[in-house]
Design a protein around this nucleic acid. Structure first.
Lengths: 189, 189
DNA sequence: CATTTTTTTTGCCATATGGCAAAAATTAAA
DNA sequence: TTTAATTTTTGCCATATGGCAAAAAAAATG
């Protein structure tokens, strides 16, 4: 819980009272490895925050390949922002790669917080804006740099994560074939 | 102006009164080819919307190459969301590729609209959320598909734009060298 | 343990894109 | 126009990554 409050506090100061309110609304959700937090075609009903485990955001491309678009490890938001806010069906799936514990808030909970906490929506906007800028930057790097550099960067940004996820998922996230990633790893060691 | 209201209306219904208010706040900004709407290191002070011309979002990478991260043609928002909302220095530059006319709103204007129009912040959140999801999707495609496919997709998404921008900017946007893009174009014709 | 099943690594060769530099074409300037 | 400056195309060869399939290793199962 503390970690969640920390993440929010980066964007605005929260009073003790507000923190209590937020805490009181949070529910704990357990996911087993392989479970989905959000399925393709569904509208996201919950705002999530990973306390334990890892999710991956994925989908099937035109030729049926399972592609990982993002990993969500501990202390990161698990949220399809456009599906949650615009109530549109999700094009991606949020799948637990390992057993997970999430803090979750329903839409109603979030509406309640928006009413009770002035500036709550601004916090959400700031978080989303930051995510967008970050995504732009990362995707730029992915496009510009070669696969080895992308892999090394991944190791740096998500220390230890590479050992907890299947090679195939990491390869598709990096935009290369699994066999190429395998060769890159060999080259590096 | 109408086009701007249309863009907003996709996310929420606006009353005639609100539309008038929005219209009354908008200022027109002219940029000459080469001018910057936002410079690297500056905090974004204005929310923009392109009425005429094209901007490109760009930066210099570690080895000094000028890289284009995005193009912003007519009827699109010109905004570094994280810089504007979080008041952080921009890492990118918004440069006019051609003479441009923008609608602009200051931070004060935007705050005024947020006070006067219930749900204004939700609109901004929805726009940002949509942009994030869209960016994720596009960047996924950029990573997964080969350069020829990316180029063809660019032509489809931004009809006519390719003829209005320098080849070098388009190549860096697509993540390839200008010479490669030149060869791809030849192959296609 | 022994046996399946799944995941990862390798080999061999094909293809896409890069690097560099010069030529050609286009655009701007005098 | 003619000349100069800028942008785009090409040639030649190097390197990175892909495709496919088999081997090896690791993990799951009985």
């Amino acid at each position: 819980m503390e970690e969640f409050i920390n993440c929010l506090s980066k964007y605005s100061t929260l009073s003790g009272q507000h923190i209590e309110l937020i805490t009181s609304k949070a529910k704990l959700l357990n996911l087993k490895k392989g479970d989905c937090f959000l399925e393709v075609g569904r509208v996201a009903k919950q705002f999530g925050f990973v306390m334990e485990g890892v999710l991956r955001v994925c989908w099937y491309n035109e030729i049926g390949e399972d592609i990982t678009r993002a990993f969500i490890p501990e202390y990161h938001f698990a949220l399809n922002v456009s599906s949650f806010n615009n109530e549109t069906p999700s094009e991606v799936c949020f799948e637990a790669i390992a057993n997970c514990k999430l803090l979750v808030f329903s839409k109603k909970d979030m509406a309640g917080l928006a009413n009770a906490i002035p500036g709550w929506n601004e916090i959400l906007l700031k978080i989303t804006a930051t995510a967008l800028t970050n995504k732009s930057k990362v995707s730029q790097n992915m496009l510009t740099q070669d696969a080895t550099t992308r892999y090394l960067e991944f190791l740096k940004i998500y220390p230890g994560l590479a050992n907890r996820i299947p090679l195939s998922a990491l390869a598709s996230y990096l935009g290369i074939k699994q066999s190429s990633l395998s060769r890159i790893r060999r080259k590096i060691i």
